[in-house]
Amino acid sequence: MKFKDFIKDKIILIVSIILAVISIEILLLAYKIDLIIKIYIAVIILFVILLAILIEYTRKKHFYNQLKENIEGLQEKYLIPEVIKTPDFAEGKILKDVLQEIESSRIDNVNYYKNIQEEYKEYIELWIHEVKIPISASKLIIQNNKNKVTKSIDEELDKLENYTEQALYYARSNAVEKDYIITKTNLKEIVNGAILKNKSTLLNEKIVLEINDIEKTVCTDSKWATFIVNQIIQNSIKYSNPENKKIEIYAKEKNDKVILHIKDNGIGIKKGEITRVFERGFTGENGRIIGQKSTGIGLYLCKKLCDKLGLGIELNSEKNVGTEVKIIFPKNSYITF
Protein backbone atom coordinates (compact mmCIF):
# COMPACT_ATOMS: atom_id res chain seq x y z
CA MET A 1 0.00 0.00 0.00
CA LYS A 2 1.43 3.33 -1.04
CA PHE A 3 1.28 6.33 1.29
CA LYS A 4 -0.09 8.49 -1.56
CA ASP A 5 -3.04 6.11 -2.02
CA PHE A 6 -3.69 6.05 1.69
CA ILE A 7 -3.70 9.86 1.89
CA LYS A 8 -6.10 10.02 -1.05
CA ASP A 9 -8.47 7.76 0.91
CA LYS A 10 -8.20 10.11 3.91
CA ILE A 11 -8.66 13.30 1.88
CA ILE A 12 -12.10 14.15 3.32
CA LEU A 13 -10.81 13.86 6.87
CA ILE A 14 -7.76 15.97 6.09
CA VAL A 15 -9.75 18.72 4.33
CA SER A 16 -12.30 18.85 7.18
CA ILE A 17 -9.57 19.20 9.76
CA ILE A 18 -7.88 21.97 7.84
CA LEU A 19 -11.27 23.77 7.54
CA ALA A 20 -11.81 23.27 11.28
CA VAL A 21 -8.38 24.72 12.09
CA ILE A 22 -9.04 27.71 9.81
CA SER A 23 -12.38 28.41 11.48
CA ILE A 24 -10.82 28.11 14.93
CA GLU A 25 -8.09 30.56 13.84
CA ILE A 26 -10.77 33.03 12.60
CA LEU A 27 -12.57 32.73 15.94
CA LEU A 28 -9.32 33.29 17.85
CA LEU A 29 -8.64 36.35 15.64
CA ALA A 30 -11.98 37.86 16.76
CA TYR A 31 -10.97 37.43 20.44
CA LYS A 32 -7.57 39.10 19.84
CA ILE A 33 -5.54 36.16 21.27
CA ASP A 34 -1.73 36.21 21.21
CA LEU A 35 -0.14 35.13 17.94
CA ILE A 36 1.98 32.56 19.71
CA ILE A 37 -1.09 30.80 21.16
CA LYS A 38 -2.82 30.86 17.75
CA ILE A 39 0.18 29.15 16.13
CA TYR A 40 0.48 26.74 19.04
CA ILE A 41 -3.14 25.57 18.74
CA ALA A 42 -2.91 25.11 14.97
CA VAL A 43 0.38 23.20 15.17
CA ILE A 44 -0.80 20.95 18.02
CA ILE A 45 -3.99 19.98 16.22
CA LEU A 46 -2.26 19.33 12.91
CA PHE A 47 0.59 17.43 14.59
CA VAL A 48 -1.69 15.13 16.58
CA ILE A 49 -3.83 14.42 13.53
CA LEU A 50 -0.76 13.72 11.40
CA LEU A 51 0.57 11.34 14.03
CA ALA A 52 -2.76 9.50 14.17
CA ILE A 53 -2.78 9.16 10.37
CA LEU A 54 0.77 7.82 10.35
CA ILE A 55 0.02 5.24 13.03
CA GLU A 56 -3.04 4.06 11.15
CA TYR A 57 -1.03 3.94 7.91
CA THR A 58 1.72 1.71 9.33
CA ARG A 59 -0.82 -0.69 10.83
CA LYS A 60 -2.76 -1.09 7.60
CA LYS A 61 0.34 -1.13 5.45
CA HIS A 62 1.69 -4.02 7.48
CA PHE A 63 -1.50 -6.05 7.11
CA TYR A 64 -2.17 -5.42 3.42
CA ASN A 65 1.44 -5.86 2.35
CA GLN A 66 1.54 -9.18 4.15
CA LEU A 67 -1.73 -10.15 2.47
CA LYS A 68 -0.34 -9.33 -0.96
CA GLU A 69 2.93 -11.10 -0.36
CA ASN A 70 1.17 -14.22 0.85
CA ILE A 71 -1.24 -14.38 -2.02
CA GLU A 72 1.62 -14.15 -4.49
CA GLY A 73 3.49 -16.97 -2.82
CA LEU A 74 0.45 -19.18 -2.48
CA GLN A 75 -0.26 -21.80 -5.12
CA GLU A 76 -3.82 -22.35 -4.07
CA LYS A 77 -4.92 -18.79 -3.59
CA TYR A 78 -8.21 -19.58 -1.97
CA LEU A 79 -6.34 -20.80 1.10
CA ILE A 80 -5.23 -17.21 1.90
CA PRO A 81 -7.25 -16.84 5.15
CA GLU A 82 -5.24 -19.74 6.59
CA VAL A 83 -1.94 -17.86 6.36
CA ILE A 84 -2.82 -14.33 7.49
CA LYS A 85 -3.12 -13.06 11.06
CA THR A 86 -6.38 -11.59 12.20
CA PRO A 87 -5.86 -7.81 11.91
CA ASP A 88 -6.64 -5.48 14.84
CA PHE A 89 -8.85 -3.08 12.86
CA ALA A 90 -12.47 -3.48 11.89
CA GLU A 91 -12.20 -3.35 8.09
CA GLY A 92 -9.46 -5.97 8.14
CA LYS A 93 -11.54 -8.23 10.34
CA ILE A 94 -14.43 -8.00 7.95
CA LEU A 95 -12.10 -8.77 5.05
CA LYS A 96 -10.71 -11.84 6.77
CA ASP A 97 -14.19 -13.09 7.68
CA VAL A 98 -15.31 -12.71 4.08
CA LEU A 99 -12.22 -14.50 2.78
CA GLN A 100 -12.86 -17.31 5.20
CA GLU A 101 -16.42 -17.66 3.96
CA ILE A 102 -15.18 -17.75 0.38
CA GLU A 103 -12.61 -20.37 1.24
CA SER A 104 -15.02 -22.74 2.89
CA SER A 105 -17.62 -22.37 0.19
CA ARG A 106 -14.93 -22.95 -2.40
CA ILE A 107 -13.73 -26.08 -0.61
CA ASP A 108 -17.30 -27.38 -0.39
CA ASN A 109 -17.71 -26.77 -4.08
CA VAL A 110 -14.46 -28.51 -5.00
CA ASN A 111 -15.34 -31.47 -2.81
CA TYR A 112 -18.72 -31.71 -4.46
CA TYR A 113 -17.11 -32.09 -7.88
CA LYS A 114 -14.38 -34.31 -6.50
CA ASN A 115 -17.04 -36.69 -5.25
CA ILE A 116 -18.89 -36.63 -8.53
CA GLN A 117 -15.63 -37.32 -10.37
CA GLU A 118 -14.66 -40.10 -7.98
CA GLU A 119 -18.08 -41.74 -8.27
CA TYR A 120 -17.94 -41.50 -12.03
CA LYS A 121 -14.47 -43.03 -12.11
CA GLU A 122 -15.62 -45.87 -9.88
CA TYR A 123 -18.60 -46.41 -12.13
CA ILE A 124 -16.40 -46.48 -15.25
CA GLU A 125 -14.05 -49.00 -13.67
CA LEU A 126 -16.96 -51.14 -12.58
CA TRP A 127 -18.56 -50.87 -15.99
CA ILE A 128 -15.35 -51.90 -17.73
CA HIS A 129 -15.02 -54.97 -15.55
CA GLU A 130 -18.64 -55.80 -16.29
CA VAL A 131 -18.29 -55.32 -20.02
CA LYS A 132 -15.31 -57.63 -20.06
CA ILE A 133 -17.57 -60.51 -19.06
CA PRO A 134 -19.71 -60.50 -22.24
CA ILE A 135 -16.53 -59.89 -24.29
CA SER A 136 -14.98 -62.97 -22.65
CA ALA A 137 -18.11 -65.00 -23.24
CA SER A 138 -18.22 -63.94 -26.90
CA LYS A 139 -14.55 -64.84 -27.35
CA LEU A 140 -15.14 -68.25 -25.84
CA ILE A 141 -18.12 -68.85 -28.12
CA ILE A 142 -15.91 -67.90 -31.07
CA GLN A 143 -13.19 -70.29 -29.93
CA ASN A 144 -15.73 -73.08 -29.81
CA ASN A 145 -17.18 -72.17 -33.21
CA LYS A 146 -14.25 -71.21 -35.39
CA ASN A 147 -15.01 -70.12 -38.92
CA LYS A 148 -14.52 -67.20 -41.25
CA VAL A 149 -17.38 -65.19 -39.81
CA THR A 150 -16.43 -65.64 -36.17
CA LYS A 151 -12.79 -64.88 -36.98
CA SER A 152 -13.87 -61.55 -38.36
CA ILE A 153 -16.02 -60.91 -35.29
CA ASP A 154 -13.03 -61.85 -33.18
CA GLU A 155 -11.00 -59.06 -34.74
CA GLU A 156 -13.76 -56.58 -33.96
CA LEU A 157 -13.83 -57.86 -30.39
CA ASP A 158 -10.10 -57.20 -30.15
CA LYS A 159 -10.76 -53.60 -31.09
CA LEU A 160 -13.56 -53.39 -28.56
CA GLU A 161 -11.24 -54.79 -25.94
CA ASN A 162 -8.55 -52.24 -26.77
CA TYR A 163 -11.03 -49.38 -26.54
CA THR A 164 -12.32 -50.55 -23.17
CA GLU A 165 -8.78 -50.88 -21.92
CA GLN A 166 -8.05 -47.35 -23.08
CA ALA A 167 -11.12 -46.12 -21.20
CA LEU A 168 -10.01 -47.91 -18.07
CA TYR A 169 -6.58 -46.33 -18.13
CA TYR A 170 -8.10 -42.96 -18.95
CA ALA A 171 -10.31 -43.22 -15.88
CA ARG A 172 -7.33 -44.20 -13.76
CA SER A 173 -4.93 -41.69 -15.24
CA ASN A 174 -5.73 -38.96 -12.74
CA ALA A 175 -4.97 -41.11 -9.76
CA VAL A 176 -2.05 -43.19 -10.99
CA GLU A 177 -0.40 -43.08 -7.59
CA LYS A 178 -3.30 -45.06 -6.12
CA ASP A 179 -2.82 -48.23 -8.08
CA TYR A 180 0.60 -48.92 -9.27
CA ILE A 181 3.58 -50.85 -8.04
CA ILE A 182 7.07 -50.06 -9.23
CA THR A 183 9.10 -53.23 -9.56
CA LYS A 184 12.21 -54.33 -11.38
CA THR A 185 10.82 -55.66 -14.63
CA ASN A 186 12.35 -57.06 -17.74
CA LEU A 187 11.61 -54.75 -20.63
CA LYS A 188 11.13 -57.84 -22.76
CA GLU A 189 8.08 -58.84 -20.75
CA ILE A 190 6.51 -55.43 -21.26
CA VAL A 191 7.16 -55.38 -25.01
CA ASN A 192 6.11 -58.99 -25.54
CA GLY A 193 2.93 -58.46 -23.55
CA ALA A 194 2.01 -55.54 -25.78
CA ILE A 195 2.87 -57.44 -28.96
CA LEU A 196 0.76 -60.42 -27.91
CA LYS A 197 -2.25 -58.17 -27.54
CA ASN A 198 -1.98 -57.29 -31.21
CA LYS A 199 -1.28 -60.77 -32.42
CA SER A 200 -4.20 -61.23 -34.79
CA THR A 201 -3.79 -57.81 -36.42
CA LEU A 202 -0.02 -58.21 -36.77
CA LEU A 203 -0.50 -61.58 -38.42
CA ASN A 204 -3.40 -60.57 -40.62
CA GLU A 205 -1.70 -57.41 -41.83
CA LYS A 206 1.50 -59.35 -42.43
CA ILE A 207 3.66 -56.94 -40.48
CA VAL A 208 7.30 -57.87 -40.03
CA LEU A 209 8.53 -57.47 -36.48
CA GLU A 210 12.20 -56.88 -35.80
CA ILE A 211 12.93 -57.08 -32.13
CA ASN A 212 16.45 -56.67 -30.75
CA ASP A 213 18.23 -56.12 -27.43
CA ILE A 214 15.17 -55.73 -25.26
CA GLU A 215 16.39 -57.95 -22.44
CA LYS A 216 16.99 -55.08 -20.05
CA THR A 217 15.91 -54.46 -16.51
CA VAL A 218 13.85 -51.34 -15.89
CA CYS A 219 11.98 -50.03 -12.88
CA THR A 220 8.34 -49.37 -13.56
CA ASP A 221 4.82 -50.74 -13.20
CA SER A 222 4.66 -53.39 -15.87
CA LYS A 223 0.87 -53.20 -16.43
CA TRP A 224 0.90 -49.47 -17.07
CA ALA A 225 4.04 -49.67 -19.16
CA THR A 226 2.55 -52.49 -21.23
CA PHE A 227 -0.50 -50.35 -21.85
CA ILE A 228 1.67 -47.44 -23.06
CA VAL A 229 3.77 -49.64 -25.34
CA ASN A 230 0.58 -51.26 -26.63
CA GLN A 231 -0.84 -47.86 -27.60
CA ILE A 232 2.35 -47.01 -29.51
CA ILE A 233 2.38 -50.35 -31.31
CA GLN A 234 -1.27 -49.94 -32.23
CA ASN A 235 -0.43 -46.58 -33.79
CA SER A 236 2.46 -48.14 -35.69
CA ILE A 237 0.08 -50.74 -37.05
CA LYS A 238 -2.63 -48.24 -37.83
CA TYR A 239 -0.40 -45.90 -39.79
CA SER A 240 1.85 -48.52 -41.33
CA ASN A 241 3.11 -48.45 -44.86
CA PRO A 242 0.67 -50.26 -47.18
CA GLU A 243 3.59 -52.31 -48.54
CA ASN A 244 6.48 -53.91 -46.68
CA LYS A 245 5.00 -53.23 -43.29
CA LYS A 246 7.69 -53.31 -40.67
CA ILE A 247 8.00 -52.43 -37.01
CA GLU A 248 11.40 -52.28 -35.33
CA ILE A 249 11.69 -52.47 -31.59
CA TYR A 250 14.99 -52.19 -29.75
CA ALA A 251 16.40 -50.77 -26.55
CA LYS A 252 19.56 -48.87 -25.73
CA GLU A 253 21.12 -48.06 -22.40
CA LYS A 254 22.25 -44.57 -21.63
CA ASN A 255 23.60 -43.60 -18.20
CA ASP A 256 20.93 -44.58 -15.70
CA LYS A 257 18.21 -44.85 -18.36
CA VAL A 258 16.96 -47.46 -20.78
CA ILE A 259 15.52 -46.06 -23.97
CA LEU A 260 13.00 -48.17 -25.83
CA HIS A 261 12.70 -47.36 -29.54
CA ILE A 262 9.57 -48.30 -31.47
CA LYS A 263 10.06 -47.47 -35.10
CA ASP A 264 7.78 -48.01 -38.08
CA ASN A 265 8.15 -47.35 -41.78
CA GLY A 266 4.64 -45.97 -42.05
CA ILE A 267 3.08 -42.84 -43.46
CA GLY A 268 4.72 -40.52 -40.94
CA ILE A 269 3.51 -37.22 -39.54
CA LYS A 270 3.58 -33.79 -41.17
CA LYS A 271 6.32 -31.58 -39.78
CA GLY A 272 4.06 -28.91 -38.33
CA GLU A 273 1.98 -31.46 -36.47
CA ILE A 274 4.67 -33.34 -34.58
CA THR A 275 4.73 -30.96 -31.65
CA ARG A 276 1.00 -31.31 -31.20
CA VAL A 277 0.59 -35.10 -31.25
CA PHE A 278 0.47 -35.37 -27.47
CA GLU A 279 -2.37 -32.86 -27.20
CA ARG A 280 -5.73 -34.20 -26.13
CA GLY A 281 -8.07 -34.67 -29.07
CA PHE A 282 -5.47 -33.75 -31.68
CA THR A 283 -5.96 -35.92 -34.75
CA GLY A 284 -4.07 -34.07 -37.45
CA GLU A 285 -4.00 -34.91 -41.11
CA ASN A 286 -3.42 -38.64 -40.60
CA GLY A 287 -6.43 -38.86 -38.36
CA ARG A 288 -8.65 -37.81 -41.22
CA ILE A 289 -7.23 -39.79 -44.12
CA ILE A 290 -7.11 -43.43 -45.18
CA GLY A 291 -10.27 -44.19 -43.26
CA GLN A 292 -8.32 -44.57 -40.04
CA LYS A 293 -10.45 -43.05 -37.42
CA SER A 294 -8.35 -41.35 -34.82
CA THR A 295 -9.65 -40.31 -31.43
CA GLY A 296 -6.73 -38.15 -30.41
CA ILE A 297 -6.69 -39.87 -27.05
CA GLY A 298 -4.02 -42.56 -27.40
CA LEU A 299 -0.85 -40.48 -27.44
CA TYR A 300 -2.32 -37.90 -25.06
CA LEU A 301 -2.92 -40.66 -22.55
CA CYS A 302 0.57 -42.12 -23.13
CA LYS A 303 2.17 -38.77 -22.39
CA LYS A 304 0.04 -38.24 -19.31
CA LEU A 305 0.77 -41.68 -17.91
CA CYS A 306 4.49 -41.37 -18.72
CA ASP A 307 4.59 -38.09 -16.81
CA LYS A 308 2.90 -39.68 -13.83
CA LEU A 309 5.09 -42.78 -13.88
CA GLY A 310 8.29 -40.80 -14.29
CA LEU A 311 8.96 -42.09 -17.81
CA GLY A 312 10.03 -39.97 -20.73
CA ILE A 313 8.36 -40.10 -24.12
CA GLU A 314 9.55 -38.55 -27.38
CA LEU A 315 8.29 -38.76 -30.93
CA ASN A 316 10.15 -38.16 -34.16
CA SER A 317 8.63 -38.52 -37.56
CA GLU A 318 9.16 -37.81 -41.20
CA LYS A 319 6.36 -37.73 -43.72
CA ASN A 320 6.30 -40.88 -45.87
CA VAL A 321 9.36 -42.28 -44.11
CA GLY A 322 8.12 -43.36 -40.73
CA THR A 323 7.66 -42.56 -37.09
CA GLU A 324 9.82 -43.38 -34.13
CA VAL A 325 8.69 -43.22 -30.54
CA LYS A 326 11.18 -43.35 -27.70
CA ILE A 327 10.12 -44.30 -24.22
CA ILE A 328 12.70 -43.60 -21.56
CA PHE A 329 12.67 -45.87 -18.52
CA PRO A 330 14.69 -45.34 -15.37
CA LYS A 331 16.99 -48.16 -14.28
CA ASN A 332 16.60 -47.48 -10.59
CA SER A 333 13.44 -47.15 -8.59
CA TYR A 334 13.84 -43.54 -7.62
CA ILE A 335 11.21 -41.46 -9.33
CA THR A 336 9.94 -37.98 -8.79
CA PHE A 337 6.50 -36.67 -9.50
Binding site: I133, S136, A137, L140, I141, Q143, N144
Partner: peptide, 15 residues
Protein backbone atom coordinates in the same frame (compact mmCIF):
# COMPACT_ATOMS: atom_id res chain seq x y z
CA UNK B 1 -20.82 -67.41 -11.96
CA UNK B 2 -21.48 -66.27 -15.51
CA UNK B 3 -23.51 -69.10 -17.03
CA UNK B 4 -22.41 -68.64 -20.63
CA UNK B 5 -18.72 -68.41 -19.84
CA UNK B 6 -19.04 -71.51 -17.68
CA UNK B 7 -20.78 -73.50 -20.40
CA UNK B 8 -18.39 -72.42 -23.13
CA UNK B 9 -15.36 -73.19 -20.99
CA UNK B 10 -16.80 -76.59 -20.14
CA UNK B 11 -17.40 -77.43 -23.76
CA UNK B 12 -13.98 -76.13 -24.81
CA UNK B 13 -12.11 -78.07 -22.13
CA UNK B 14 -14.14 -81.23 -22.75
CA UNK B 15 -13.24 -80.98 -26.41
Amino acid sequence: DDKKIRQELESFLNK
